[in-house]
Design a binder for these strands. Structure first.
Length: 824
RNA sequence: GCGAGAAUGGCGGAAUUGGCAGACGCGCUGGACUUAGGAUCCAGUGGGGCGACCCGUGUGGGUUCGAGUCCCACUUCUCGCACCA
């Protein structure tokens, strides 16, 4: 070549030039992607004018916390799956708003900062930049970066604090002493959802302890009923709603008033008031306030010891002891209101202080836990429900089946199902109790004794007590201190910052101190979807008219690990803001879909296992389009699947085939089979995307390009349809090819193709012939052939006849599908 | 223990008013092109049998002309919850 250049410049340059042209025709993802990304950005294709846009569609996806490790395949999988849905909606003519932001406050970020000894603010800024510039922008998602947000930005957390104040002012936030989960490694309080099997979610091997601290709580329990009832009305997967249902844990029963021997009254909750006559003892939680009162002098030591023991045990350890029930007798007695029976009072850690009233009536005959305890303690067991009304004696376990009430005074003979209601009504008339509903759900502890979060906007004044920071003083800025390392004192590092903590009381002007706890990072993410459309609005947390137009979000896609925590809190905060008149809807999203997870070699990707797939490297090697396509092809989006290094090449081949086929230029070849294949593909892809069945949509696209190639069809309509249908999956290549086909505007503005129903039906059909249910032949017949005619042809088939041994008893004809000959 | 889901070739997975099991892709086998092939293209590929055929969707029953699909019982696995009175 060099020689040719030197000898004959003209020829050689032409050759060289042609070589470059050939090269440029070959698919180079880096070139295509850089080019199209630039065009999208300069054209502002994905920047939405929130006021003007028509047919708004809010496509929300769970935002990431920007870790130092960078975006992982799981994030990519979720974002890409969500983007495909969004791009499809765009091609349906919607103005699709697809924002992305950063959940950058919180323990995740802070712990990492501590580990690498870098200030979290600095680290977060670096990580956010890396996520956005080097990773998210390469995925090919249509993010509207003009509406991005970062929860650590004072312009954002100003409003997080404002929301805290709204809850406070409306009696939904309060500070109280409470036993909480304490992680000695994080040196902070954890929410129940951050505790796994008694261990810290972040530090897998660190046991969570119980501590009693003054904490801020949001009264989510006030909303338990609505949070539960609304589940019936929202379009969410059953798997998620059932988790929420069980966590809310509604049970109906009765509150029954018992009496201590000294006349003091106390209440217990039961779901089985019909077994009241079977109460043979009572149990208080070790922490129950009446324990001291009922304990007799001789039992004092034993009771105190037991209380000590229980206090030391974490909640998990208490639960671990399920097999062996423990407890001690207090020496005290209560009186059963229904029959005046004198029943002993025990304390035991199988009764929890924070459910119901922290005290129970024990019916060992009909409750397995009470039965176990009674056996250990050698307590009396009285049957009050018996099948056919005949007592069964000790069965070796509690009897919880159906039966008639016995030994129950006026209710003898009542079936247990009716008994609950009848006894409850009777209790009310007697003044012994009332119907009651209890929830498992606990109030939301939002205090965190950490540095990296929005300071809770409260001031403590000796004179005025707890005073909210005036709204005009928001945000309460997180001081840029280097002293942010938690010390395990149970107080936030902020408490050591005298200068920051000291302030004046907004009410009396006297000296006061700031609240030093920061709020839970779940509060940041409980309202972010409301902020996206109103990003930039300084004077209010949201713009009402924009919110009305865009919210609730049309689709929300995220991980099901958030079924309980985030997804409950976001609903709760939305309901509260609705009740306070800020929103005209009370559920945050119209539809929610949970995606699956991507594993590697069957296991969750983790650094310790060394099976982490690096998305950047995959994109470098195969291109973002192939990466997108492959992730979606692994398996059903809602199930996820296992990442396989080998499998991705099939997707790269598909992308190249599409690229090459369109680049080859159109021709006029167009057999009818191709047209049919095109219509089938339009139908299939259009049906699969809305149900997130991306894997089967892609399979159909592969079938389609195979059909086109086999028939050498590059008819314009067939090619354009191919590009359009593939566009949500491989947006860069699709855009490039759309341009190649001579279009000036984006393929995403080109609309979604429609199919012709008549093209879906074949004129000739294959009818299979079975003899006694076994496949023995097939017929090619015209569509909708006369039944008798088909039957005749089937019976005449040589191979079929061979298999008919006896007389033909019956012939079943399913038109256009099958003939089954039943012969003896 | 309770709740939800799942089980289909060597692998990922398709297939629902019950009607050709294994679409699509990976891998594998053979071939073409090639100096070369870890590129590309073509053909084949559930198991057994030379064959006609036989067997085959976790196990065992059932309904049906016909079952991966429906019913009953069971096994295994995954996930979630777990003393909530």
């Amino acid at each position: 070549m060099g020689y040719a250049l030197w000898l004959d410049k003209g020829t050689a340059i032409t050759e060289l030039y042609q070589g470059i042209i050939t090269m440029s025709k070959a698919y180079d993802p880096a070139v295509v992607e850089a080019k199209q990304r630039k065009i999208w950005e300069s054209r502002g294709d994905y920047t939405i004018d929130m006021n003007k846009a028509d047919k708004p569609f809010y496509n929300l996806m769970m935002f990431p916390y920007p870790s130092a490790e960078g975006l992982h395949v799981g994030n990519c999988f979720a974002f890409i799956g969500s983007d495909i849905y969004g791009r499809y909606q765009k091609m349906q003519g919607h103005s699709v708003f697809e924002p992305m932001g950063f959940d950058a406050f919180g323990i995740h970020s802070e712990n990492f900062a501590l580990k690498v000894k870098k200030h979290p603010a600095k680290l977060t800024a670096e990580n956010v930049r890396n996520f956005r510039e080097n990773q998210l922008k390469r995925l090919g998602n249509m993010f509207d970066w003009s509406h991005s947000l970062d929860t650590t930005d004072p312009a954002y957390y100003k409003w997080t604090q404002w929301i805290f104040l709204q809850l406070y002012k409306n009696g939904l936030a309060e500070q109280r002493e409470s036993a909480v989960n304490w992680c000695p490694a994080c040196k902070t309080v954890l929410a129940d959802s951050q505790v796994e099997d008694g261990y810290c979610e972040r530090h897998g091997d660190v046991k969570v302890e119980q501590r009693t601290l003054k904490q801020w709580f949001f009264k989510i329990t006030n909303y338990a009923e609505r949070l539960l009832n609304n589940l019936e009305t929202i379009d969410w997967p059953e798997a998620v709603t059932s988790v929420q249902r069980s966590k809310i844990g509604r049970s109906t029963g009765a509150m029954v008033t018992f009496r201590l021997e000294d006349g003091e009254l106390f209440e217990i909750f039961t779901t089985r008031p019909d077994t009241l006559w079977g109460v043979t003892y009572m149990v208080f939680a070790p922490e129950h306030p009446l324990v001291e009162r009922v304990t007799t002098p001789s039992r004092k030591q034993a009771v105190a010891d037991y209380q000590d023991e229980a206090r030391k045990k974490s909640q998990f350890e208490r639960q671990e002891m399920i097999k062996e029930k423990t407890g001690v007798f207090t020496g005290g007695y209560a009186v059963n209101p229904v029959n005046g029976a004198r029943v002993p009072i025990y304390i035991a850690d199988y009764v929890l202080m924070d459910y119901g009233t922290g005290a129970i009536m024990a019916v060992p005959a009909h409750d397995s836990r009470d039965y176990e305890f009674a056996k250990v303690m050698n307590l009396e067991i009285t049957e009050v429900i018996a099948p056919d009304g005949v007592a069964q004696g000790d069965l070796g376990e509690a009897y919880s089946g159906p039966g008639l009430m016995i030994n129950s005074g006026p209710f003898n003979g009542t079936p247990e199902g009716e008994g609950v209601g009848k006894v409850t009504a009777w209790l009310e008339t007697q003044g012994f109790g009332r119907g009651s509903i209890n929830y498992r759900l606990r109030d939301w502890c939002v205090s965190r004794q950490r540095y990296w979060g929005p300071p809770i906007p409260i001031i403590h004044c000796d004179k005025c007590g707890t005073v909210p920071v005036p709204e005009e003083d928001l945000p309460v800025l997180l001081p840029e201190s280097d002293d942010y390392i938690p010390d395990g004192s149970g107080k936030s590092p902020l408490a050591r910052n005298e200068e920051w903590t000291r302030c004046t009381c907004p009410k009396c002007g006297g000296p006061a101190r700031r609240e030093t706890d920061v709020s839970d990072n779940f509060l940041d993410s409980a309202w972010y979807y409301l902020r996206y459309p109103s990003v930039g609005m300084d004077e209010r947390f949201i713009d009402p008219s924009i919110t009305k137009k865009w919210c609730p979000a049309d689709m929300y896609i995220g991980g099901k690990e958030h079924s309980f925590g985030h997804l409950l809190y976001i609903r709760f905060i939305t309901m509260v803001l609705h009740d306070l008149g800020y929103l005209d809807f009370e559920e945050p999203v119209k539809s929610f879909r949970a995606h699956g997870i991507i594993t590697k070699d069957g296991g969750k990707m983790s650094k310790s296992k060394g099976n982490v797939v690096n998305p950047d490297a995959i994109i470098d090697r195969y291109g973002a389009d192939t990466f997108r396509l492959y992730l979606m092809f692994i398996g059903p989006f809602m199930l996820g699947g296992d990442y396989d290094d080998q499998g991705i090449v099939g997707c790269r081949r598909f992308v190249e085939r599409v690229f090459d086929w369109v680049n080859k230029g159109e021709n006029k070849t167009r057999p009818e089979d191709c047209v049919r294949s095109m219509h089938r593909t339009i139908k299939k892809v259009g049906e699969d995307i809305p149900t997130l069945s991306y894997n089967t949509a892609i399979a159909q696209l592969m079938t389609y390009i195979n059909d086109l190639r086999a028939a050498d069809c590059r008819h314009r309509e067939c090619l354009e349809t191919l590009v359009k249908l593939a566009a949500p999956f491989i947006p860069f290549v699709a855009e490039e090819l759309w341009e190649k086909l001579g279009h000036k505007h984006s393929v995403f503005a080109a609309g979604w193709p429609s199919y012709d129903e008549s093209m879906l039906v074949e004129n000739t059909v294959t009818v299979v012939i079975q003899v006694n249910g076994k496949l023995r032949g097939e017929l090619q017949t015209p569509r909708d052939m006369d039944r008798a005619e088909v039957e005749k042809l089937a019976l005449a088939d040589e191979r079929v006849q061979k298999h008919i041994v006896g007389e033909v008893r019956k012939v079943i004809v399913i038109p256009n599908k099958l003939v089954n000959i039943v012969a003896k």
